[in-house]
Design a protein around this nucleic acid. Sequence first.
DNA 1: CATGAATGAGAATTCATTCAT
DNA 2: TATGAATGAATTCTCATTCAT
Lengths: 205, 205, 205, 205
Amino acid sequence: MAYQRSALMQERLAENRERILRSARALIARGGFREASITAVAADAGLSTGAIYRYFPSKAELFVEVLTEAVRRECDILREIIGRPGTADQRLRAAVDSFARRALEGPYLAYAFIAEPTDPEVEAARILCRQEFSDVFKTVLRQGISTGEFPRQSVDVSAACIVGAFTEALVRPVAPTTPRSKDEKLIEAIVDFCARAVSGPARQA
Amino acid sequence: MAYQRSALMQERLAENRERILRSARALIARGGFREASITAVAADAGLSTGAIYRYFPSKAELFVEVLTEAVRRECDILREIIGRPGTADQRLRAAVDSFARRALEGPYLAYAFIAEPTDPEVEAARILCRQEFSDVFKTVLRQGISTGEFPRQSVDVSAACIVGAFTEALVRPVAPTTPRSKDEKLIEAIVDFCARAVSGPARQA
Amino acid sequence: MAYQRSALMQERLAENRERILRSARALIARGGFREASITAVAADAGLSTGAIYRYFPSKAELFVEVLTEAVRRECDILREIIGRPGTADQRLRAAVDSFARRALEGPYLAYAFIAEPTDPEVEAARILCRQEFSDVFKTVLRQGISTGEFPRQSVDVSAACIVGAFTEALVRPVAPTTPRSKDEKLIEAIVDFCARAVSGPARQA
Amino acid sequence: MAYQRSALMQERLAENRERILRSARALIARGGFREASITAVAADAGLSTGAIYRYFPSKAELFVEVLTEAVRRECDILREIIGRPGTADQRLRAAVDSFARRALEGPYLAYAFIAEPTDPEVEAARILCRQEFSDVFKTVLRQGISTGEFPRQSVDVSAACIVGAFTEALVRPVAPTTPRSKDEKLIEAIVDFCARAVSGPARQA
DNA sequence: CATGAATGAGAATTCATTCAT
DNA sequence: TATGAATGAATTCTCATTCAT
């Protein structure tokens, strides 16, 4: 019986933890880190502020987890796409397309990605996240270069540029009123940009 | 004598104003908008907090000026470069090169560009700044496309991607410890990336 | 047990709220709105400044409540007195007497009534309070006039004058050192003044 | 020549002093003591803030002078009226009428009279001013009582009540939109109120 | 003498975090 | 374990007063 209670409890705890993360994510998405006060997160999650501190040692660590979790999911998907068969170009396009598509549906993962956090600790995490993103693209870039499909280039820089390019392109111009029909054009344009950027002719000598 | 006093005073005032702007810029650069409290700016500028309000009506307006001033300077230079003779590719490369070079010297214009301000008023200004940057690149893109030098592409998206690409590439990996020698390679890689992105082959049908 | 805790807590909360109101009232009474800073109110109530904001959304709203609560109490009593049987003159006298008596015991309700608040929001509330006071007296004035007990007169003006007359008479001369024995004479004089003012002979033609 | 300069100077000084007082009075009248900051007074007077302190040792003393000067003028007029020949009733009526009329034209002397100053020093002066007003009315009251025209009453209290009555009646209901035509009725009602109050039948035994 | 830039104490308000219940 | 009231440091902004020019 003690076991049963423990099991139920553990489930509840996990549930609460998940709810807090979801609420934090939603609030950050809606209004940036600025709107995601502990009070707001607690209210949204249906818990007390004190309870938050039972699951997370500080606001900063909560936000770090929100960020890393979101990025981990994203990167898992991207890695899977990049691991498929096909040319490097095809796979890069598919990855950018997939990311852009999801970003447009919940446009603010990208936002949380760009938004400056209030806390240096979170800021550090954000940089790591961007690097993780970068790494995913580096993989396919290296493959493309080694097969001769892509010209020689700095994979570090190209990967960073790809991440920057599509976050920039996605976050700002996508006003809430942008009609759905234009999304396809936008995605296509971003995908093309990135594809050209890595597979275009090498530098003219 | 009254004239001299007035002249000296005016100089002092202009100097103070400039010092405040410089301090704000430096603090924003170092630690984002978060670190640039009025108290910190005042201390850094060697003035009292009250003095700040003699020069700027509010914190928000100070930051807006920091932002717009920095961007105006940058855009002026870029516009000049893009107005020079030469192929669109040459001019785009020159522009990106010039921006990247200055960004590496005072690496944090780009940061202020990315950092999320605490204040919606400043946020609005930042978006306008990004658009102004975008607009500069749109000009050369349109020219390149109309002469057939660049393939057909969405100038809006390409311009946004270019801005995103080099801010991303510049801001993060450039740790303070990065050796100077690597800078040239970095700049070259970014320039190449952007050049390929706009002049690479059109989408394969 | 949860119930008990909740009940105790609720009691505490109500107690704190009351303490804040009491402190604000006392400070306003002693030194006007000027002395009633949030810091002072908090200190007097034995709470932190932040705690005040858990009970009242702003300084203005706290002061508005102080004012309206005090006036409501006063008006309730006055209305009750005016609703009793008797001549209009008797009831007016009783009302003025009752108000004056309480004002002398806690002499500063009247003061809060005169003091100019720093905040337009509070100022608005004060005007409403004065009107509510006025309205109470208008009732008995109208009754007296309709029964022929009082001469024809502007009830609006007479009511305002009554309020002004006794606040003025009460607030100022009542230095903290005024001996108790003189209070009775003072009250009687004020009551007489007001009674004569409304029931004296009509204007001589 | 030194004399001439000195004379011119002295004139200028007196002129400036007067201008400062006028500006302060106007600002207090318009928006209460709250709006009458030193900066505002200086701007309105066409002088620097520093200059204010050459004429008045502090904001408080400036305001005290504004108050006492205004009250002195008013009291001079009232005393003149009360010194005229006629019954006490006639002279009291004339005095109240005269004051009310001027108050309605520049409605805010009365306001400055009620408004709570930010400064205890000014507050003290205001109390004295009210007493001076009171004293004027006491004169005529004593005369009326000694001739048997007015019933026995506390002249202290009656005088205070008169001052309170008409300031209250004048300040508040006089919204800026009140039509001029109603002013006559208002003045008449106030005059009647005060006249009845002092000349009505003595307390019923 | 006049100027007005500078000061700096103090005001209201916010919010992450703690801790008694 | 959960609650949410309380804390208190930090932030932006104001304004009477001073003093170098």
